[in-house]
Design a protein around this nucleic acid. Structure first.
Lengths: 341, 341
DNA sequence: CTGAAAGCGCTTACAG
DNA sequence: CTGAAAGCGCTTACAG
């Protein structure tokens, strides 16, 4: 490997001078010297050894990406296309900005602390942590962090890049309502965090024209497939009556859709269904799933650029920025009162 | 941050001794000293600064994962569930073995060289490179590398972890043949690399009982969706006649299946369809896709452990190890002559 | 059994 | 405008 010293020797100058032109401390170096060194640097394809760089006062330029999800729906977190797109986009963007991405498994907090300190990362982008887990981590590790899609119990006390779940829920609710489904149900695996916001948006939309949308229209289902399906069986008569189901995830929506289809129930003729996320398979299933789309690459961009600003010492005012969201109408809802556009 | 020196001070010994116990050069250190230092290390949660470690003779313990795919089907490479599962599994396993994963975009070879040298990575796992691109890279970068799913023009001259495409093709062909579809077509976007092997396996299976499977039964379709779909339209009469189509990817299989479904053609009643890969959405579509499954996490394991062995100086005899593959029968093939199991 | 010292490849305040 | 020197946090041959 070729070192600074080697370059200096070739140029007939000192390491100091070479280092100065590399780092742009170029004010006090003659143009001639600059040109000569630059040429050699290029010709030799010199790259500094990051170990030395780290050791001599400069940052590591490593961004840790912490993937803290527990296996969602039994798959590897990175298998989820949302996570994949997010991480991939972060890595692309980091690369053009001259940063490096280190992947860190997030389950074990001590591990995260360990790796982040070892490598002196400049910041962490964290997926799949809740506020409590973040709190534990931040007690042990003093680094800049931005979380993705995390809901705190109270006010935001950390940097978050989220998504406008409330609005997404509202848009779904409003759409269903406008199609005449004013008794539609909302189905989720929990009643907290994003599920809660989505439900609240949905509820709000359903309460147009002075109507009331009671809590009984939020159906919580198990995170175990078998139990979920069983619940759908039990609830089938109610489903058939209300005629429309808004799911809080594409995954569950598609699962349910297939479950109904397999029993000979016509979707959307007998039951209209919506999802949430616009995952990659929303368009692959038939009928194509009507769902809520978010701009994942924008989210990646927001997360990284905000983290970098924090790392540069900037104090960000907003604690929680939200990526916008929009309904994408496909085929899983029967639009009774509404012409297709 | 707490340094070796600090630990040494607390223990009342020299840095050397502390370093010795950390690195297990423990033969010439008294048990008493070992215990004392170990306790302090633990209590202080000491972790070494990797910059120093790298600089003083030890390896970086960084494995670079190069994602060199061009956007497959218009998505981010990491969005592909295969890539996601692979990378995720590699990262998990690396972490338990005390290695770190750096994500590297592979499009620009110079970039890969740059990052790998800067960080003095101990090895590279490379996805989505062909033999030519590997050749270019290896000319500029002297590191241990293992590729994933790469086919060389001739003999293997690099370490590869692949999949038994030939066998997969054979299994599909044999299954279809046994169901009576002895005129089935094979559909792929290229006629090289894995597509070629799959086709050859398929062909071989179709040539049972002295039959002949001509090259005309390999249908090459465009990588542009519009053109693909147009081709399916043109070929529809032939499809209906041969009654079975084996696609070289789940993605194309599902797209085609939906295309037919949208035209009112019954799948599998009128056309049986198979995919390849067993992606996450193979089970989400209706009918569920019959396809070929490979053990992705085993592949991740093979890639990493072989790379580590190479990094440790071992000469691996096998240049190309293949992960096994098996058919998974679902619902997209009508089993005329065969009872469902 | 333990420690002083050299060295890894850089950067940066400082002197000239 | 340029360079000698100190220093970053570790490891390791070597001396005692």
């Amino acid at each position: 490997m070729i070192r600074l010293q080697d370059i200096a020797d070739m140029a007939g100058v000192s390491r100091t001078t070479v280092s100065n032109v590399i780092n742009g401390n170029t004010k006090r170096v003659s143009q001639e010297t600059i040109d000569k060194i630059t040429a050699i640097l290029k010709e030799q394809n010199y790259v500094p050894h990051m170990g030395s760089v780290m050791l001599s006062g400069h940052g590591s330029r490593i961004i840790g990406v912490v993937v803290g999800f527990n296996q969602a729906h039994g798959m590897q977190p990175l298998q989820d296309s949302f996570v994949g797109e997010l991480v991939g986009t972060i890595q692309n963007e980091a690369e053009v900005k001259g940063y490096y991405i280190m992947l860190i498994g997030g389950e074990n907090i001590q591990h995260v602390v360990d790796i982040a300190s070892r490598w002196n990362v400049e910041g962490l982008i964290i997926l799949g942590y809740n506020d409590e887990k973040y709190r534990q981590l931040s007690r042990k590790l003093n680094k800049k962090m931005v979380l993705i899609d995390t809901y705190p119990a109270g006010e935001y006390f950390f940097q978050n890049v989220g998504v406008d779940d409330y609005s997404g829920g509202y848009q779904i609710g409003n759409y269903l309502y406008s199609c005449g489904y004013d008794k539609a149900l909302f189905i989720a695996e929990t009643d907290i965090d994003s599920d809660y916001s989505r439900w609240m948006g949905f509820k709000q939309a359903m309460e147009q024209d002075g109507k009331f949308c009671s809590r009984t229209r939020l159906v919580i289902v198990s995170y175990e497939k078998k139990k979920r399906l069983q619940k759908y069986s039990e609830l089938l008569p109610r489903f058939l009556e209300v005629k429309a189901l808004a799911f809080s995830s594409d995954y569950d929506a598609i699962e349910a859709m297939n479950f109904f289809l397999d029993q000979g129930i016509k979707i959307p003729d007998q039951i209209s269904i919506t999802g949430y996320d616009d995952s990659i398979y929303a368009q692959m299933v038939r009928p194509k799933l009507t769902t809520v789309h978010q701009d994942v690459s924008q989210k990646a961009h927001l997360a990284l650029s905000r983290l970098l600003r924090m790392a540069a010492g900037e104090q960000l005012k907003e604690m929680n920025v939200k990526s916008p969201v929009h309904l994408v109408r496909r085929e899983s809802v029967k639009e009774k009162n509404r012409p297709l556009i």
